[in-house]
Amino acid sequence: MAVSALRLGAEKLFEMPAVLRRLSRCQSTSQAFAEVLRLPKQQLRKLLYPLQEVERYLAPDRRQDLHLRIFNPSPEDIARAESVFKATEHNRIEYVSSAIRMDHAPDLLRPEVCFIGRSNVGKSSLIKALFSLAPEVEVRISKTPGHTKKMNFFKVGKYFTVVDMPGYGYRAPEDFADMVETYLKERSNLRRTFLLVDSVVGIQKTDNIAIEMCEEFALPYVIVLTKIDKSSKGHLLKQVLEIQKFVNTKTQGCFPQLFAVSKCNCSLSTSQFSPAVAAGHHI
């Protein structure tokens, strides 16, 4: 069972000396990852496995209607992903350009991963956190909904391009539908779409529209549950169960893994999520 494997893996991560030695070897890969390893054990567990506190309620044998998949990256996976997002002389991470229409979008050959979601769901904050190891890259964030008005393209070394899409719903750009729908439909090098959902309110009607677009265009996409630090354990469990049931019964192209992130203000907040983004361009 996926949940049993996660529980066993989490126990081994903090109890087996061999695995702890692997963690120590990863420490030299990234200063940010080294900071992760210095966190108290309980905080480290919560960071690497944000759904661990509710996992016992998600056992597949208790909920036959769920086919749960939990993303469980190894310490090496996390360190490798951190190296992808770390700016160096040989790994340039930079803002490329912005566009309001597809004919203004940069003609890039490398694979792309894009982030979409309702206004103020935390897209730009999450991308800013992913780029925290490249401080020269400016990702503008705002508490005002609808701050992002254009498609923003960021080069991640030789690996892929990250695209920050305007938020839909409240204060969305007037040409949002044409801009985003055209991108999702026509961008041939788009490999994976990360659809962000606010854990406080769950999937809304506007989210359903975005999901329908991904399904119609047969895009591989992933749901990311944001702001989990603002939800109680019971409320978070309710949202996870509802989203998992929604994915299993009403979607075809959505990956069964549900990713959860808390308020993002540094790379430590995305250590568990970074490998998913780094792997997304291979799909």
Rank of each mutant, 00 (worst) to 15 (best):
T193G: 05
H235S: 07
G202C: 07
T226E: 03
Y221C: 03
A218R: 15
E212W: 05
Y183R: 05
E216N: 14
E215H: 06
D198Q: 06
S232N: 03
V222Y: 02
E242F: 10
G202T: 04
T193E: 08
P220S: 13
V200W: 02
A210L: 11
E186R: 12
S232T: 11
V222T: 13
V240H: 00
R192G: 05
L237V: 03
H235T: 10
F246C: 07
R187F: 04
S199L: 11
K185I: 06
S232G: 13
K245A: 13
I228Y: 00
S232K: 04
H235I: 04
N189C: 11
M179F: 13
I203V: 12
I223R: 00
F194G: 03
S231F: 01
R191T: 13
R192M: 13
A218C: 15
K230W: 05
A210W: 05
P220Y: 11
K250H: 15
I243Q: 00
C214A: 11
K250Q: 15
E215M: 09
T182S: 15
R192T: 11
G202F: 07
V247G: 00
I209T: 13
M213V: 12
S231R: 00
Y221W: 12
D207S: 08
K238S: 09
L195G: 00
V222H: 02
Q204V: 12
L195C: 06
V222C: 11
K205A: 13
R187W: 09
G234M: 08
Q239V: 09
Y221T: 03
T206K: 11
L196H: 01
A218P: 08
K245P: 03
A218Y: 14
D198H: 06
T206V: 15
L236F: 01
K245R: 15
V222I: 09
L225I: 08
T193F: 05
I228L: 01
E242K: 14
A210T: 11
E216W: 12
V222E: 02
L236A: 01
H235V: 03
L184D: 04
V200C: 09
K233S: 04
Q204D: 11
V197T: 04
K185A: 13
K233M: 02
Y183D: 03
E216F: 12
K205F: 10
S232Y: 01
G202V: 08
T226V: 05
